[in-house]
Nucleic acid binder design. Structure first.
Lengths: 257, 257
DNA sequence: GGCGTCATATACTCGGACAAATGCATTGAC
DNA sequence: GTCAATGCATTTGTCCGAGTATATGACGCC
């Protein structure tokens, strides 16, 4: 809560853009809302006061609110003000909203939910991919797995290669709504590794599972692809659940943090 | 393309609010983009010209662009302008984006994709719901099915009861990301009935299938719920596919429209 | 030919003014 | 005393105009 002016590493678009004010305000407010600092139903201070307090113009603040409103986090009406909506109405599948959730330590329920979703989506997507994949999909998948193998999941490159592989499977499924879930699944994949990393050792070499999925998709076997992917995600789930229990136990010990 | 000033039945929020300018502009531009009137990669006219042409202030126009940008449809940068992004980056699961798709006759691929998604999601959600549903979930489902029975799918009330039932199943799954898919599934459900209605007769009484799903969830049988829901969605899929083929054949005949 | 500098077009930010809507209290009718 | 109509105050919505920051492409220099 220091009067920080350092933009720090907040939000910059993919292309290394400098952060715009409306974007940073939307980011900060978004994080504050999903982390519960503003309770659902609560009404934000009015535009004039709040924008002054945030040291930005009313226009910039309003654009930030438009962004939050577009993602379902708030709702504004004349006279009433801008109210935080109920969490059911939040656009959880929105990449930004999900990122805001993960900006602070996310709710374990959300982690569980994401894994459950992955267990539902990814095997089915792999089956579809086995039927519809084009040669270039296989090229991308193979490249991703090779990068993953070379850099390992301990590196940023390896983790992003992991996400690239899962993205490619969804892409190869040839289903538009499934492709839109890529960022959601990607967030799940990312946090799998994060949680795994909290354990001292990586409990299991992830590569064989991945190659099995790839082989099944390449061979055009939907059912083999489905079960291989189910195996892969299931293993990740078990590892993560173990790490999650452990870190919760640790938290119980030192609440100091 | 007439100089229409009649706001018609465009966008009003759930609560019967009067449409705000930034909302209508976002709606109109959003529809224009997803329907391909502005091609991906294309750059919109600059703020000053475009807002003048649309007869709105720059501020209102900018807020509209913020909304579109929040949903991934456009990306703006100084000097370059505001560019329509590639469809893969669009937030297809966003309720508004989906609604904008359906504002005009949507791409059959999208319809297919939504059904495929439903076939993946809903049986799994029904299975989870059978394990986790609380009494009040069952109350809501029963109420929805009774309304559906009373009003039939030929009425607005009946259709909304249908959506309410599917929503309740997702809600009862106790999985946050799944609940967020409610609007997506709901759009699929809605269009099922629309397409069905294009055929002269309703080909099959939907109620028995629905009650079977309900009974399985109420009895707490995950596998029974899964297969009952798969049956229900599968039947809807077959009916819709038939209607779709028929209407495509009709289109081939009269391209006049 | 490659690299740095500069001009320019564009979105971004700001401040201020007025309009419109809406919830609430006050008033009035019955 | 209850209820409806009405006026008021508060807040968001809309508009305008000016100045800033930034990215891109062109130009000139080495």
């Amino acid at each position: 809560m220091a009067p920080t002016d350092k933009t720090s590493d907040k939000p910059r678009r993919r292309t290394g853009n400098p952060a715009r004010i409306h974007g940073t305000i939307a980011h900060d407010l978004g994080v504050a809302i999903v982390s519960g600092q503003y309770a659902p139903g609560e009404i934000l201070p009015n535009e004039i006061n709040f924008s002054e307090r945030l040291k930005v113009s009313r226009s910039a603040y309003r654009e930030a609110v438009r962004i939050l409103s577009a993602k379902g986090l708030v709702e504004s009406r004349p006279k009433t003000g801008t109210r935080v909506t109920q969490p059911q109405r939040w656009n959880l599948l929105d990449p930004d909203v999900l990122a805001w959730y993960f900006a602070t330590e996310p709710d374990p329920d959300l982690i569980d939910g994401l894994f459950e979703l992955r267990m539902i989506i990814e095997p089915a997507a792999a089956a579809l991919a086995a039927e519809r994949r084009e040669p270039h999909h296989l090229t991308i998948m193979r490249q991703a797995l090779m990068n993953m193998e070379r850099h390992t999941l301990n590196t940023e490159e390896g983790q992003s290669a992991d996400r690239a592989f899962h993205d490619a499977v969804l892409e190869a499924s040839g289903n538009m709504p499934l492709r839109s879930l890529a960022s959601t699944i990607g967030a799940g994949v990312r946090w799998t590794t994060v949680y795994k990393a909290r354990k001292d050792e990586l409990p299991r070499d992830p590569m064989p599972d991945h190659w099995r999925v790839f082989d099944a998709i390449a061979a055009g076997g939907p059912e083999a692809a489905r079960s291989a992917m189910a195996e892969l995600v299931g293993a990740a789930l078990r590892d993560t659940a173990r790490a999650l229990r452990r870190s919760q136990k640790a938290d119980a010990g030192d609440n100091a943090r």
